[in-house]
Design a binder for these strands. Structure first.
Length: 880
RNA sequence: GCCGGAGUGGCGGAAUUGGCAGACGCGCGGGAUUCAAAAUCCCGUCCUGGCAACAGGGUGAGGGUUCGAGUCCCUCCUCCGGCACCA
């Protein structure tokens, strides 16, 4: 239905769905002539021109111009090709890039491919096709689609993360992480050789001491193991406790994994958000993800044991209200303290907890469960003996893996205490008397701030005062200390996959690991006969025995690490490789880095608001510590484009059948219409539905613009185009437009910029004489948005060279101002009349004019104005 | 549950940040052109009443501040996004 209508309507403007019965044939049979807007031919012509002339080549270290680095989040080259969401961000950055060039900036605007990823590997498993082959094919297709949109990328800087010449340096950074530690005092990374190692350690202990401090390290952590698929899955591949593909059950299984110590950078990742120009909402997402909380660690003795239990709490002021303790099932002391009577129950509980997935432990299990250990702890502030429980509502991975429970003032503890009939003791008096009564009766849990009660010598203190006093009190007695915890966890950095960067690490016969030499990089992926998982938890690379088994220079045998890196790895630093993409000696040249960094504008989808941006920032700070980059933060300004929905207002998906194919849009309406429509839809950051009719609308605008310059019948310059001075009104409108478009590009208000150009075009269309100078300015400001038609019109207006580096037309403030302005006249806020006054009229004159209006006099009905408010160039309000 | 963001014509969206609500585009209605259609051009198009001039109402709902509120404040509703036992 829709395609039928669209096809019918564009018959004159484009080739439509009915393929070759398009513009040229239909129009040709109708006697169409040379001069109609033939976007297909024009776009091919100028794309070839730009390629041939390398119009958008960025010159490194050009000191004669200010630099501007404008970056897109590079895409995964999917077999589906480009969807209409991609060009949204790309068009926005392209407009800025082209605008900045015209403003005299040396612009770096590169593009590349985040090319490692699961789909190519799944395809390899299914068909035996090498993922590299699939990837290259997909890149070629998406590159064709991207180029068809006329973006002004410096294609000579194109990179793909799967290219060994690229992942050489990904591996190099990981090797640096492996060979570095974090100096707590200086709060920065340093080479591992500089790590002070205590004296008197055995060789093995020494080794252990060092390995425990590397920024890339191994640990046993639970992974998502799917027995049916015989493989480990990423969190994104597990939906609702089963595998995304096939719906097979997934269990948690501890495996030796590579981790990156991102938590060491938590404080800096938080602090430096102050330095970047990102939306507050994105910053907040990061802040919440890092999840810093300040409190105290407190030591509880276990009755009858030497061991102590440490807990972390943000509310040390509620210590007197701690009526029991809870340890995570995985807590190392569980086995030690459990009594004989409780042993069976505790073991059963811990085993069940181990089997549960994260999902079971949170979403599905709202109801609290737990079991008593039989052991008791001593509350350090009042020496009360309190029971120690086990429950999976306490996480081993946060804080100390154990808590003191204060049911009167913590929702979770309240719920647990209620269920297991544990005592509830109020120690904070809420400000509201009503609340206070209910808390005292044990009916209400109060988590806010108040005044201390039932807290011995501390009674009467406010929550804030108490926190400070008790923390000091505990510290003096060695029973506690101030502590800061983060929700952020170390980054699980290994995947049991083939299609990823191999680790530059070998395992020695004695079980230790070592990094390979930088000279051996890149460590290339070996080819495999087939890509199916082994069915054990071993990664596919284990199959490549020739590759895995290596002989070290000293003649000893070793095995390569068979895990590969996650997809995030390549995208963590690609913005640096663009600076110097063909450098075989190093990842990037320091002088080029100093010249181009930081990225001035970074645009991409909000789905990367947390992980990609956090990981990149982490690597960047690490590289900063080692002196490889000169800025603390990589991305100065960040903008997230909103999602584009289908015409039905739903998310685009194959199953809904509402996917819009960019190739089709380009064929039917042209790249310029596509670009313009994507920007005209609405604010860049908003979510908005697609509309083919909307594409028609901007296409009509381009045709109108075309006809301002070209006489369709002859294909020659329109006779209305003359070297005549513009009349006052036209000139004013032109300069208003120049100002509006420039201002709007600076503030990413592309939709309103286009609207302003439409107003000017509509006006010029009505003129008998169209001054060439006005058209030239119009074409120049249109160029960043619709570059192909702009180049063509610029040429037809008599210019030999591309307009890509023409200066952006400036506006004249004096010409913008209207001579006469219309003001609304209100009586008590209601508009009663409009008056026209000279732009420079003073308040008194305006007031006199307003009060003399018949309609105003009538509305006043003889009453005397109490007050007259004159807002110059806006309105007059007469108050009675 | 908690934290963000947003609710404006039939639709996408504007509104110089407290100053004429609905720019621009779509859609729709009417007209011109045409043998006819497409395309193009012109006029109209927030709602209600009226031939009209005009009058009244109107930015999710209710209240408030102000000469004046889509914009600021309070309460509530709806939608979208994020987090989800982080002690």
């Amino acid at each position: 239905m829709i395609s039928e209508r669209v096809g019918g309507r564009v018959a004159c403007g484009g080739s439509g769905r009915r393929g070759s019965r398009g513009l040229r044939k239909v129009a040709g049979s109708m006697g169409m002539t040379e001069g109609t807007y033939d976007f297909g031919q024009i776009e091919r012509k100028w794309q070839a021109y730009w390629d041939e002339h390398k119009s958008f080549k960025a010159t490194d270290c050009d000191a004669s111009k200010p630099k501007y680095y404008v970056l897109d989040m590079f895409p995964y080259p999917s077999g589906q090709g480009l969807h209409v969401g991609h060009p949204e961000g790309y068009t926005a950055t392209d407009i800025v890039a082209r605008y900045k060039r015209m403003k005299g900036f040396n612009v770096l605007h590169p593009f590349g491919w985040d090319a490692f990823g699961l789909p190519a590997e799944q395809h390899a498993i299914a068909t035996g096709t090498h993922p590299e082959e699939t990837t290259n094919k997909n890149i070629a297709n998406m590159k064709r689609q991207t180029k068809a949109l006329g973006f002004s990328y410096d294609w000579d800087r194109e990179v793909a993360t799967t290219d060994p010449e690229y992942y050489h340096w990904t591996q190099w950074i990981v090797l640096k992480l492996f060979n570095s530690y974090f100096d707590e005092e200086l709060q920065k990374a340093r080479p591992i050789e500089e790590l002070p190692v205590p004296d008197g350690l055995s060789a093995q202990e020494r080794r252990r001491y060092i390995d425990d401090r590397r920024l890339a390290y191994q640990a046993d952590v639970p992974v998502n193991w799917c027995p049916a698929l015989g493989t480990v899955l990423a969190n994104e591949e597990v939906v609702g406790g089963v595998s995304e593909r096939g719906g097979h059950p997934v269990i948690r299984k501890p495996m030796r994994q590579w981790m990156l110590r991102i938590t060491k950078y938590a404080e800096r990742l938080l602090d430096d958000l102050k330095e970047v120009d990102w939306s507050e909402s994105i910053k907040k997402l990061q802040v919440d993800w890092i999840g810093r909380s300040v409190g105290a660690e407190v030591c509880f003795r276990i009755d009858g044991y030497e061991d102590n239990i440490w807990v972390f709490t943000t509310r040390p002021d509620t210590l007197f209200g701690a009526t029991y303790m809870v340890m995570a099932p995985e807590h190392p002391l569980v086995g030690t303290i459990v009594t004989e009577a409780q042993k069976q129950a505790v073991e059963a509980y811990c085993e069940a907890a181990a089997r549960k997935s994260d999902l079971d432990r949170t979403d599905l299990a709202k109801d609290k469960t737990g079991v008593f250990t039989g052991a008791y702890a001593i509350n350090p502030v009042n020496n009360e003996r309190i029971p120690i429980w086990i429950s999976d509502y306490v996480l081993i991975s946060y804080g100390t893996g154990a808590i003191m429970a204060v049911p009167a003032h913590d929702d979770r503890d309240f719920e647990f205490a209620t269920k297991f009939a544990l005592p509830i003791v109020q120690v904070v008096q809420p400000p509201s008397a009503e609340d206070a009564e209910r808390v005292a009766r044990g009916e209400l849990c109060f988590t806010g701030d108040g005044t201390a009660i039932h807290s011995g010598p501390f009674d009467g203190l406010t929550t804030a005062e108490f926190k400070e006093k008790i923390t000091a009190w505990l510290a003096e007695r060695g029973l506690g200390k101030k502590a800061i915890n983060y929700k952020l966890r170390d980054w699980l950095f290994s995947r049991q996959r083939y299609w990823g960067e191999p680790f530059p690490i070998v395992h020695l016969a004695d079980g230790t690991v070592t990094g390979i030499s930088e000279r051996e990089l890149p460590l290339r992926l070996p080819d495999l006969d087939d890509y199916k998982p082994l069915g054990t938890a071993e990664p596919p690379l284990a199959k490549a025995t020739d590759w895995v088994n290596v002989t070290l220079p000293d003649g000893s045998a070793a095995r390569r690490e068979t895990n590969t890196m996650p997809q995030w790895a390549g995208s963590c630093w690609y913005y640096l490789r663009y600076l110097d993409p063909r450098n075989a000696e190093r990842g990037w040249d320091p002088a080029k880095e100093k010249y181009w960094m930081p990225v001035d504008l970074y645009i991409g989808g909000a789905e990367h608001a947390v992980l990609h941006l956090l990981y990149s920032r982490f690597w960047h700070k690490f590289l900063y510590d080692l002196g490889y980059v000169s800025t603390k933060e990589p991305f100065k300004k960040l903008v997230n484009q909103g999602m584009i929905l289908g015409e039905d207002g739903q998310k685009m998906s194959k199953s809904r059948g509402n996917v819009v194919n960019p190739d089709q849009v380009v064929t039917d309406y042209g790249a310029d219409s596509m670009r313009l429509y994507e920007m005209f839809m609405g604010p860049l950051e908003a979510m908005k539905p697609w509309s083919m009719n909307g594409v028609q609308g901007v296409h009509r605008f381009l045709q109108k613009t075309w006809r301002l310059v070209v006489e369709e019948e002859t294909g020659r310059l329109s006779p209305a185009v003359q070297d005549a001075p513009a009349d006052e009104e036209t000139l004013r409108l032109l300069h208003q437009t120049l100002k509006k478009v420039g201002d709007d590009v600076e503030s990413f208000g592309f939709n309103t910029a286009i609207s302003a150009m439409m107003i000017l075009v509509n006006h010029l269309g009505r003129q008998q004489v169209r001054p060439k100078s006005v058209l030239e300015s119009l074409v120049l400001v249109l160029a960043p948005f619709a570059p192909h038609i702009a180049e063509e019109l610029w040429q037809r207006l008599g210019h030999a060279n591309s307009l890509a580096h023409e200066p952006w037309p400036s506006y004249d403030k004096g010409l913008i101002r209207e001579r006469q302005i219309e003001l609304a006249v209100q009586v008590n806020g209601k508009i009663r009349d409009r008056i026209v006054v000279a732009a420079e009229a003073d308040e008194e004159a305006i007031q006199a004019e307003a009060l003399s209006s018949d309609k105003v006099v009538e509305a006043l009905a003889g009453k005397t104005p109490r007050k007259v408010i004159v807002i110059k160039s806006r309105l007059v309000n007469v108050v009675v």
